[in-house]
Simulated scan of single mutants.
Amino acid sequence: MFELRRLRLLHELALRGTLAAVAEALSYSPSTISQQLAQLEKEAGVALLAPEGRRVRLTEHGRVLAAHAARALDLDEQARGELESLHPGLAPVRVAVMQTAALAIVPTALRLLGERAPHLRVELVEMPPEAGLFELAARGVDLVIAEQYPGHTRELADGLQRETLGTDPIRLAVASRDPARSLDDLRERPWVMEPAGTAARLWAMQQCRAAGFEPDVRYELADLSAHARLVAAGQAVAVLPDLLWEGSAERLRLVDLPGRPAREIFTAQRTSSAPRAGIVEVRRALHDAFPPSARDDV
């Protein structure tokens, strides 16, 4: 009989690629991971790993067993979800949130949960959507609040299901006395954008290129509040989502982009966790906490 914890280690290795990454994600030492996987090989009676330079890779047998491990973990999660339906709050709900959601949605959602499900424990970790969706598939979190930009559909990963919370307009942000009226007026300005590789950065770059120029990205910051401060100080311009201004006192001027684009804000969970009453409660609170998207100038 296979031990589920060891099967999870094999599943994690299939997702993360290295023993060091698995050890970091699960707070184990690499030697402990190696020992447990060696024991799993004994239980399987075949080689699951093969050396590849300083790393290891899954053998064909390892890939087969890793696929079975994913299904076993799904069944375990479904069973736990059904138990939780009989005893709500049995397990905490771990949520990966992007920064704007943490600022504009989560506080109200937590207040609602305090009224509706006072015994439910919710744990939050701030992650960019790309990392949050990966950790969801890897079972590092139970729920993700993520975004999807116009024309940039995120991968529809097997075993995950989405639910739209709402749409969030994206507009140019300039200093309050800046005379700019369109993207074309910002050709020579310094820009602040999110780090390379994020959907937000790719989308912003494409808007500038569609307007006929390559933006001078002088500041690369993950913190959108820092973007707003640089814009307010007249040191940069940006394209920013309206959720950032929820409850904000920053004095900026917002300019509509052509077509008035908006990003989709959604939650995602594993299909196998659908029976979990705690996740259903958290999703409902997030939906009810989503603020109106249409905003006037800040």
Rank of each mutant, 00 (worst) to 15 (best):
A285W: 09
L112K: 07
R121A: 15
F213Q: 09
L165S: 03
P291A: 09
I279V: 09
G212L: 03
L75N: 02
Y149H: 14
L224Y: 02
R162A: 14
L143P: 07
R229S: 11
A23D: 10
A67C: 13
V125T: 11
A101E: 02
G53D: 05
L58T: 00
E12G: 01
R55Y: 04
A44L: 09
A14Y: 14
R283T: 06
D297A: 11
V122F: 03
V56Q: 12
R71M: 05
L83K: 14
E264G: 02
S225Y: 12
A233N: 14
P107T: 12
A14G: 11
A67H: 12
I265E: 02
A277Q: 14
L48F: 05
Q39C: 01
Q35K: 10
L9T: 02
G234F: 10
P169E: 01
A238V: 01
G17M: 03
H227A: 08
A210F: 00
E115F: 08
P92W: 08
G197D: 02
A23K: 12
C208H: 06
R121F: 04
D185S: 06
L186P: 01
H68D: 11
A47H: 10
F2A: 05
L83S: 10
F2C: 00
L103H: 14
Y219V: 02
S27P: 01
R229K: 14
L257P: 03
E155K: 06
R54T: 14
V106W: 07
R295T: 05
E12A: 15
E84S: 15
L40C: 12
I170P: 00
T100Q: 08
E264P: 04
A138M: 04
R116F: 09
A101V: 13
P258W: 09
L90V: 06
A72C: 11
R154M: 06
P150Q: 05
R171D: 01
Q206H: 04
A274H: 14
T153F: 01
A228E: 02
L186D: 00
M127V: 08
P261C: 05
L110I: 05
E3I: 09
Q78A: 11
D185H: 03
G278C: 10
F134R: 14
E77Y: 01
L58W: 04
A117K: 11
R177I: 00
E188S: 12
P179R: 04
E52N: 09
A200T: 05
R177Y: 04
L230E: 00
E246G: 13
R6E: 06
A44W: 13
H119F: 15
R54I: 09
H287Y: 05
M127R: 15
L156Q: 11
A21D: 14
L254G: 08
R263C: 05
